[in-house]
Design a protein around this nucleic acid. Structure first.
Lengths: 106, 106
DNA sequence: AACACCTGTAATATATTTATTACATGAATA
DNA sequence: TATTCATGTAATAAATATATTACAGGTGTT
């Protein structure tokens, strides 16, 4: 996972800036889980979970795959997209120029 | 700078989840600047800058010191508090248990 | 005194994020 | 067929974060 520009770094930082999403990372680091299972693990509703999963997926930190169980049920398993980011002032400085300042209507 | 628990990590990630704040880190990595100077560098108003500086200061990423210039003017210089965080699933997992889920009235 | 910089904050408005509620669909099982 | 467990989304509400506007006070210079 190579970070190309400031906006990408920002997207990742934003994705990780939430306790549920950090917990999702932690759970998926230990084992892959399907959506409903994850919702139970976290103790939150699926709609809310979807929102968080989407943020993580957009940042490319996780990915989901459909899988049909023995019983014929389709479940969506999520798993981690391993990452390793060395967060320090030097690195941020290298990417700072490629940061977009405000996303508005175009 | 040693991160002790999930909430602290989260505070840092939140502090870094904004383009202006990343730019502030970048600027202060190169040289210390006083408030008005920083506002000009960034092209934003001081009130807005203060908000961002506060977030960074709360996360302990920067610190400010008052200094009297030759001409007798008091300026508040900000400088970086160097940090180095290895952001990866393993590290997040270690801190995930010490994450507070919702801050509400107690 | 008026101007040019420096410091800061309070009140308000706007935008974004987070959370909830209400639906809708499909397949296996009792 | 009624229940259970899986998938998902649209609409709305509530909470936070971001941004703006309007102040106020200090010192040095013209």
């Amino acid at each position: 996972m190579n970070i190309q520009n400031g906006d990408e770094l920002l997207r990742i930082l934003e994705a990780l800036s939430n306790p549920y999403r950090l917990k999702i990372i932690s759970i998926l680091h230990q084992e892959r889980q399907y959506v409903s299972q994850l919702a139970r693990s976290l103790g939150i509703s699926r709609p809310l979970l979807y929102l968080h999963l989407q943020r993580l997926e957009e940042a490319n930190l996780i990915k989901g795959d459909y899988e049909v169980s023995d019983k014929g049920k389709t479940m969506k398993y999520f798993e981690l997209n391993p990452f390793f980011i060395e967060l320090n002032p030097q690195f941020i400085t290298e990417l700072a120029d490629s940061l977009t300042l405000k996303k508005k209507k175009e």
